[in-house]
Amino acid sequence: MSRDARWSALLELLAQHGRLEVEDAATELDVSAATIRRDLDQLAEQQMLTRTRGGAVAHGVSYELPLRYKTARHASEKQRIGRAAADLVAVGEVVGLTGGTTITEVARALAVRADIAADSTAGMGRPPALTVVTNALNIATELVIRPQIKMVVTGGVARPQSYELTGPLASGVLEEITLDIAVLGVNAIDIERGAYVHHEGEARINRLLAERAQRVVVAADSSKVGKRAFARVCSLGQVDVLVTDTGITAESSARFTDAGVTVIAV
Results as ranks from 00 to 15, higher is better:
residue 3 R to D: 10
residue 3 R to H: 10
residue 3 R to G: 06
residue 4 D to I: 14
residue 4 D to N: 03
residue 5 A to L: 12
residue 6 R to G: 04
residue 6 R to H: 11
residue 6 R to W: 12
residue 7 W to E: 07
residue 7 W to C: 04
residue 7 W to L: 03
residue 7 W to I: 01
residue 7 W to D: 04
residue 8 S to T: 15
residue 8 S to A: 15
residue 9 A to M: 02
residue 9 A to L: 06
residue 10 L to K: 00
residue 10 L to S: 04
residue 10 L to D: 03
residue 10 L to W: 07
residue 11 L to P: 02
residue 12 E to T: 11
residue 12 E to Y: 14
residue 12 E to K: 09
residue 13 L to W: 10
residue 13 L to G: 01
residue 13 L to R: 04
residue 14 L to V: 13
residue 15 A to W: 09
residue 16 Q to V: 14
residue 16 Q to G: 00
residue 17 H to A: 12
residue 17 H to G: 13
residue 17 H to C: 03
residue 17 H to Q: 14
residue 18 G to W: 13
residue 18 G to A: 05
residue 19 R to T: 15
residue 20 L to D: 04
residue 21 E to R: 09
residue 23 E to I: 11
residue 23 E to C: 05
residue 26 A to S: 11
residue 27 T to C: 06
residue 27 T to K: 09
residue 27 T to E: 10
residue 27 T to R: 14
residue 27 T to L: 14
residue 27 T to V: 13
residue 28 E to I: 07
residue 28 E to N: 05
residue 29 L to W: 06
residue 29 L to C: 03
residue 29 L to R: 00
residue 30 D to S: 09
residue 30 D to H: 09
residue 31 V to W: 13
residue 31 V to M: 07
residue 32 S to T: 14
residue 33 A to M: 08
residue 33 A to W: 03
residue 33 A to H: 05
residue 34 A to F: 13
residue 34 A to V: 10
residue 34 A to P: 00
residue 35 T to M: 03
residue 35 T to R: 03
residue 35 T to V: 13
residue 36 I to F: 10
residue 36 I to D: 03
residue 36 I to L: 04
residue 38 R to T: 12
residue 38 R to V: 09
residue 38 R to E: 08
residue 39 D to C: 11
residue 39 D to Q: 04
residue 39 D to P: 07
residue 40 L to F: 07
residue 40 L to Q: 01
residue 40 L to K: 00
residue 41 D to Q: 07
residue 41 D to G: 03
residue 42 Q to D: 14
residue 42 Q to A: 15
residue 42 Q to K: 07
residue 42 Q to W: 01
residue 42 Q to R: 12
residue 43 L to V: 12
residue 44 A to F: 05
residue 44 A to N: 01
residue 45 E to Q: 06
residue 45 E to K: 03
residue 45 E to I: 08
residue 46 Q to S: 09
residue 46 Q to R: 11
residue 46 Q to V: 05
residue 47 Q to N: 08
residue 47 Q to C: 03
residue 47 Q to E: 09
residue 48 M to K: 06
residue 48 M to F: 14
residue 48 M to H: 12
residue 48 M to A: 12
residue 49 L to A: 05
residue 49 L to F: 09
residue 49 L to S: 02
residue 49 L to V: 13
residue 49 L to N: 02
residue 50 T to S: 04
residue 50 T to E: 14
residue 50 T to F: 08
residue 51 R to D: 07
residue 51 R to H: 06
residue 51 R to C: 08
residue 52 T to D: 01
residue 53 R to N: 09
residue 54 G to W: 11
residue 54 G to H: 06
residue 55 G to W: 05
residue 55 G to H: 00
residue 56 A to D: 05
residue 56 A to I: 13
residue 57 V to E: 10
residue 57 V to R: 07
residue 57 V to H: 01
residue 58 A to W: 08
residue 59 H to N: 13
residue 60 G to C: 08
residue 62 S to H: 14
residue 62 S to P: 00
residue 63 Y to T: 02
residue 63 Y to Q: 02
residue 63 Y to D: 02
residue 65 L to H: 06
residue 66 P to G: 04
residue 66 P to V: 13
residue 67 L to H: 08
residue 67 L to F: 15
residue 67 L to M: 11
residue 67 L to V: 15
residue 68 R to K: 11
residue 68 R to H: 15
residue 68 R to Y: 15
residue 68 R to N: 09
residue 68 R to C: 06
